[in-house]
């Protein structure tokens, strides 16, 4: 995809939809952020109108932005006892269901992200819809615009608990029959809640509370860009030498 194409797609998007979409471009990929209320009309236009012709929806997935940008390892401020050890935190893998992070109301936690593809014009577009309510995330279903999103929305519902309003058959798809919870939410423990084994006495498979301890080997750490800037400079030096 060439640059000019992306730019003109951006222009076409803002010309057609104006304030309805917020368009950004990064790494040569275009993202349109749409409010849940106008999603259906925007989606239909994106599919049918010349200049867009996104006849194919390639992918849809949920994203849980809880804990975005949080680290477990303080790497800038040193205390009197030295740097933190990076062994505490609430990041993924650290907690059980009982100690899951709770008082974490962040605005607009869940989003549903669709990747569209136009075969005719050879262009791609990412459409993101944030859910208004964290406790009951709801977005309109796109199944009637792109039937192929049926299972993708079921998956997102299963794993994140995002409810797709208007979906004809919103059942769980990937998790076990009778599974409780939405496992890909950031406050769902990595170790899970239950484990399964065959009980020879009862002669059936039994569910028990999970017995393993949560454990993280590498702390989650965000460093400022110094590393990468330095790496880029080194790479540039290397090219100059050759």
């Amino acid at each position: 995809m060439s640059d000019t194409q992306t730019n003109s797609l951006v222009e076409r998007l803002s010309a057609r939809f104006g304030d309805l979409v917020k368009v950004t471009v990064s790494h040569g990929q275009t993202t349109a952020e749409v409010a849940a209320a106008s999603l259906l009309s925007v989606a239909t236009a994106l599919r049918d109108e010349p200049g867009f012709r996104f006849t194919e929806a390639v992918d849809l997935c949920g994203v849980d932005y809880l804990g975005y940008g949080q680290t477990e390892w303080d790497t800038t401020d040193v205390t009197s006892t030295g740097f933190s050890r990076g062994v505490e935190g609430e990041a993924i893998g650290r907690f059980t269901w009982a100690d899951r992070p709770r008082d974490v109301a962040i605005p607009r936690r869940f989003a549903s992200v669709v990747h569209l593809l136009s075969i005719e014009l050879n262009q791609r577009l990412r459409v993101r819809v944030f859910c208004e309510d964290d406790s009951l995330p709801v977005v309109p279903s796109l199944v009637h615009t792109w039937p192929g999103l049926n299972w993708f929305e079921r998956e997102s519902f299963d794993l994140f608990g995002i409810i797709y309003d208007g979906h004809p058959d919103l059942r769980r798809i990937l998790t076990d029959y009778g599974f409780v919870g939405h496992p890909f939410r950031k406050d769902f423990p990595l170790i899970g809640n239950v484990e399964v084994r065959y009980d020879p006495e009862q002669k059936r498979v039994v569910y028990e509370p999970v017995s393993i301890e949560p454990r993280v080997l590498v702390p989650r750490v965000i460093r400022d860009d110094a590393d990468l800037i330095q790496a880029k400079a080194e790479a540039a030096d290397h090219w100059r030498e050759n």
Binding site: G69, N150, W151
Partner: peptide, 24 residues
């Protein structure tokens, strides 16, 4: 589909599998 928040671990990875769309 990769979302990173600058950390040494991915924030969200979603893998778009062709078979999933086909089977649906």
């Amino acid at each position: 589909y990769l979302v990173s928040d600058g950390a040494n671990k991915p924030f969200r990875v979603h893998l778009r599998a062709p078979g999933f769309a086909h089977l649906s």
